[in-house]
Computed example of a mutant assay.
Amino acid sequence: MHPIPFVEKGKGVANLEVDGLLLTRDTDVKGWEEAVLILPKSPGLLLVYGEDIPYGWTESEIVCTASLGGWEVVRMAFFSEKVKVLIGGEPDGYWVRTLCRLLAHDERVSLVCKIREVDEVIRQLPRYLDWKERFYLELGEVCDREGVSLQTVARALGMDRRVGQEWLFPDRTDHAQLCRWIEREGRLATENANVQRIALWGPTALWNEMDTSWLKGKEVCLLSSEDEPIPNEIYKECSPCDQWQKALQNTDLLVIGRADAIISEMPLNELVHYMKQANVVDACACFPVQEACNLLKSYRAIGEKTNVWE
């Protein structure tokens, strides 16, 4: 639990100090249950923020805090890539209105709703995004069979505002379906080309769920990000790299499991320059298909009829 500082712009208030507590983790719940016994019966704010608070807990605390007299309970969470904010509480509550005003000064759109509704959005959003990704992965198989472009179909579907454009969900908890696609395409590439060195581009969690039998006998390099521990359980012959140039050097096959800023913005001619053979299995559609087919030796993306091995 933490004190709550706010800065309000344009209202003559340089530093708006709040008598209250900020809860951001599930471990804060126990601390609050202990603190509520000794808190003074004076008005304050209990701000419950983020995705790690147990479902329904905030609403249950209203009963406990009502006896404190004047305390206001607010549930708050960012969504839509942290540009919009959900605020759960009493619509006419002092701190609900204050938070909305401060967020507006920061050019953030807020939606005021019930406390339990914030919890429900937090619970359902990842479920929906995971379902949406699974739908498009299955659609990609259909597009492959029919010889049409998943990117084009997805872009057209996304023109309907109920659907939206983006469908890959990097924060998925289950990588199984994506891994099956990568395994299949990676195996085809290694069986039909002289592949000796493979670079895996993506998070450790993804490769941990993948069947690595198709990597046996190959030199494998994993581009691990700075904030990830060095993997040691993926594949015994896998060498972690912290520099993308080193990872791509003399590589025969690049497998992209997650698109970060580096690979998304990399010119294809630079990719070709570092690789020994420019064979790419891309689960994230990082490159324009036509350009990739023209510049790379082989390019395989989900739902794009670019598989030279068939």
Rank of each mutant, 00 (worst) to 15 (best):
Q290G: 08
F79T: 04
Q290Y: 01
D282F: 04
G147F: 06
L37E: 11
Y235F: 15
V272G: 02
A193L: 04
G69M: 06
R161I: 10
K11D: 12
I62R: 15
V48E: 00
G88I: 11
P3K: 06
C100N: 03
G158Q: 00
D144T: 09
N208P: 00
D211R: 13
F6G: 02
L45G: 07
P54R: 01
E33D: 12
G69L: 11
C64T: 14
D227G: 06
G164D: 05
V29L: 10
E166R: 13
L215G: 10
V83I: 07
P170T: 09
K9N: 13
A14L: 13
L178M: 13
I263D: 01
P170M: 09
K84V: 08
V280D: 13
R161M: 05
S110V: 04
G12L: 05
G70M: 03
V153I: 15
K41P: 06
E291K: 05
E226G: 01
E185D: 08
L222Y: 04
R184W: 10
P170D: 12
L45V: 10
G56S: 06
N307H: 11
D252Q: 03
C179D: 01
D26M: 04
E90G: 01
Q277I: 02
K218S: 02
L296T: 09
R187N: 10
N294L: 07
G257I: 02
A261V: 07
H105N: 15
